[in-house]
């Protein structure tokens, strides 16, 4: 199912963007701060559809121009809509994730960071073995929401021709002449996927909090 592939690819990229973005925002480097701030403002303020359109058509134009410069006979070059769409969605959800991760990083107990540094752990080690696991537990509820948004945004890539369920339903409507039925099926499928995601998130939250079992 194309939907799930887009979802998975996009999710991985979005988490990466979120980690990079939040680190940039929390770092002492002024330039990194400004770039990360611009990133979150732009991608949270522009409609998702527009972002997808800019990436898909924009990249097509750019690549075509580059192509023409090298091989003058080139008609049209584009990146597969799958990747343009997945990348665009990842950037959007990544900007929300940046804010979420930033808040979560700030919530990590500074004492254990000191303990890690006192033991001689390098910054990189401290980041991956101490900061990220702790931050993840705080960010998890919001990450669930981001995943749901991501899931629903994937419907938009049908507009640029990716053959996911909405697109297929549109084609099917021409044949069955029952648009309501078709689209309701699509809706129910999405509903099913989002429900599964919600249950998975609940299980993940329980698992990540298991080390708190003894307290309170």
């Amino acid at each position: 199912m194309v939907v799930l592939k887009v979802f998975a690819v996009s999710l991985v990229m979005a988490v990466a963007f979120g980690l990079i973005g939040s680190s940039a925002k929390l770092s002492k480097n002024r330039i990194a701060n400004k770039i990360a701030s611009a990133y979150t403002i732009v991608f949270r303020g522009v409609p998702e559809l527009l972002v997808i359109l800019i990436f898909y058509y924009g990249s097509a134009i750019t690549l075509t121009s580059i192509g023409r410069a090298i091989y003058p006979q080139t008609q049209f070059v584009d990146i597969a809509p799958f990747w343009a769409g997945a990348f665009a969605i990842a950037l959007i959800v990544g900007s929300y994730a940046t804010e979420t991760f930033r808040g979560a990083f700030l919530g990590v107990d500074p004492g254990i960071i000191e303990a890690a540094r006192a033991l001689g752990l390098s910054s990189l080690h401290t980041f991956f073995y101490i900061r990220v696991p702790q931050m993840w537990r705080l960010a998890l509820p919001s990450v669930g929401n981001h995943m749901l948004s991501l899931m629903k945004d994937t419907a938009l890539i049908s507009i640029i021709g990716v053959e996911e369920i909405l697109y297929v339903a549109e084609m099917a409507t021409a044949v069955t002449l029952k648009p309501f039925t078709m689209y309701m099926i699509v809706a129910v499928i999405y509903l099913g996927i989002t429900t599964v995601i919600t249950f998975v998130m609940m299980a993940l939250e329980k698992h990540s909090n298991r080390h708190l079992a003894g307290t309170r």
Binding site: L148, K152, L156, I159, L166, P179, F180, T181, Y190, L191
Partner: peptide
């Protein structure tokens, strides 16, 4: 909240005339 807005729009615009 569990379905994409686009799908909701399509159901109403394309679907209801059925």
């Amino acid at each position: 909240r569990g379905t994409p807005i686009l799908v909701q729009i399509f159901v109403i615009y394309h679907g209801l005339p059925q």
